[in-house]
Amino acid sequence: MTFLFQTDEKSQIKKNESFTKKFSKWKLVRRFVQTGIIFLLVSPVFGFTFFSGTLISSEIFGFFLTDPLAAADYFLAAKTFSVLVFGSALTVLVFYFFVGGRVFCSWVCPVFLLTELSEKLNKKFAVFKIKPSPNQKYFVLGAVLVLSFATSKPIFEIVSPIGFVSQNLAIGIDTKSKVFGDKISLESGEIYGNLKKNLIAKDVERVRFLFNGSLWFVLTIFLIDVFVVKNWWCKFTCPVGAFYSILGKKSPAKIKINHEACNNCGKCFKVCFVNEVLIAPVQGKSDFVLDGSCTNCLNCVDVCPESALGAGIKKDFWK
């Protein structure tokens, strides 16, 4: 992308001026939200009741939420219709339509934290440098839907790293494991008559980690991300990301660019994990980042020395 780096004096001076690192305000907010989501997922462990479930399906203050792709997989696999699943998926769909589809990725999904870590490690440890097409994820999405229908199984939910990570967060940590009298002794036979009433429960105060083998799968993805293809999962493969990309394309919440202020320094390209979406706006071809793959992570807004980029609303979003 060398064509972007103008070598005229103006931008050269500006580049040197902004050598001091800008404070990443949005990144801080985003980290706060990401941590918050993780706390939300483990909150039932500590006895909070306002949230339960995982990122596939959950309940918050009595409202059901379901991942729209999981809902689609369910309808295709079980070949039934459920008002509850449809309604709870629609709630999520409408929300992400208005805040920008892949906001789920950069602000909510716990796998994205791993992706961001793998991105850093990939800089140092990349061994192979394979670059698939960013459109690959749409094929994966299509394949998932077709396979779900053909095999009558919600295919993506069986292997979803988003599911695995959130399942492990939700039930992997166990602070108050109730231990019932394991050994049945013959002498105390009388308690068995009315077992339900007489169950002796001991609350054992300890933290147990019961992380299950599914995290192997997550580790696999992480290692591929680090060694083989940078951002293999989130950029090229994840069907949830693909789904939200399609949704986000029409969303009104978009990154806006002020062409006059932009000096083509190219800094935004370095912090954006799907940086091809920035080519058109930086070249002056559009006023917004129109590609649905943009996650509205606001990294580019943080880094832009001219404050040319900002969160914006595209008023004629239906076009």
């Binding site: 039932p44 339960s52 479930g53 995982t54 596939i56 399906s57 959950s58 309940e59 379901t66 999981a70 809902a71 997989d73 369910y74 696999a77 079980a78 070949k79 039934t80 009558s152 199984k153 919600p154 939910e157 069986i158 292997v159 979803s160 599911g163 695995f164 959130s166 399942q167 939700a170 039930i171 166990d174 494991s177 109730k178 019932f180 299950n212 083998g213 599914s214 192997w216 799968f217």
Partner: peptide, 24 residues
């Protein structure tokens, strides 16, 4: 197997830790 979307909510809800969750 077709209908379960693997949300793990049932496992979370069981007060006795009866339910276990399948892994890969």
């Amino acid at each position: 197997l077709s209908a379960c979307i693997r949300c793990a909510k049932c496992v979370q809800a069981c007060p006795y830790d009866t339910l276990k969750l399948g892994s890969v």
